[in-house]
Amino acid sequence: MTDTMRHLFILFGVLFSVLTVGGLLIWLERRLLALWQERYGPNRVGPFGLLQVAADMIKVITKEDWTPPFADKAVFIIAPAILMIVVVTSFAIIPWASGIEVVDLNIGVLFFLGLSSLGVYSVALAGWASDSKYSLLGGLRASAQMLSYEVFMGLSLMGVVMLAGSFSLREIVEAQQDLWFVVPQFFGFAVFFIAGIAETHRLPFDLPEAESELVAGYHSEYSGLKFGMFFAGEYLGITLISALTVTLFFGGWSGPYLPHAVWFGLKTFAFICFFVLIRASLPRPRYDQLMSFGWKVCLPVSLANLVVTGAWILMMK
């Protein structure tokens, strides 16, 4: 196999599996929630209801894709696309197994942080372009929340970068062969994961789309495939944050006996389930409580973590 062929193979393989996983997650989440909530969930279409995903896809694609006459058309259409592009592109840097990654950037972590900052545009623009009050409130909440949690997310990762001495995700995984970074960087992990939930705006950080308050928040006016992109984008976001958590703190693809890719898949799956479990068990804080938690708890913790890690590295030298 030539290098080009190999690259193309990995590229399309990653794209295919990411989109498949994103789709199946919809089914997985509904089944898991049902399991924890004493009900059945989708179990009619196909074996275990697995074809529900296909049925949902067909529904979303064939539904009327309505653009409100009062909306800012161009921006309204671009907004969901930005989310999809940003999330899917982020998967390029994830090492799935030793040597299997779309691209091994020496600034991998920064690349991810940069892209996730771009993701804010998607929700902010969607809320703005819809020209509806609920969307506007949702968009504003989303912008404020994502911009703040962006800060702690970046800071929480610096400890890992210092320990590994690299921004490259491959090198970060290799640096964890002896000890997973979750042990020395537990606070970094905690802040990163919390910020990750906030970035994907899942419960308890789903304020931008809080159903009982803002109907559907920033995507209230969206329908059809454009809504589908926000919907699938959320699940891809969960997968991305889970995959990154595994890569940065839980040794990535490394593990005994089983093939690397399987280890990576299992670990990621566990975190995805954790995302769903959190959604099933927690209520939602108020907007001001969310912000003060971020700035008064997450920020000091991640800064302290950074200082202590730096001091420790200097002492070891």
Partner: peptide
């Protein structure tokens, strides 16, 4: 549910 907790209403 109004406070955002998703599961209790099912129980």
């Amino acid at each position: 549910q109004d406070v955002g907790s998703f599961s209790p209403v099912f129980y």
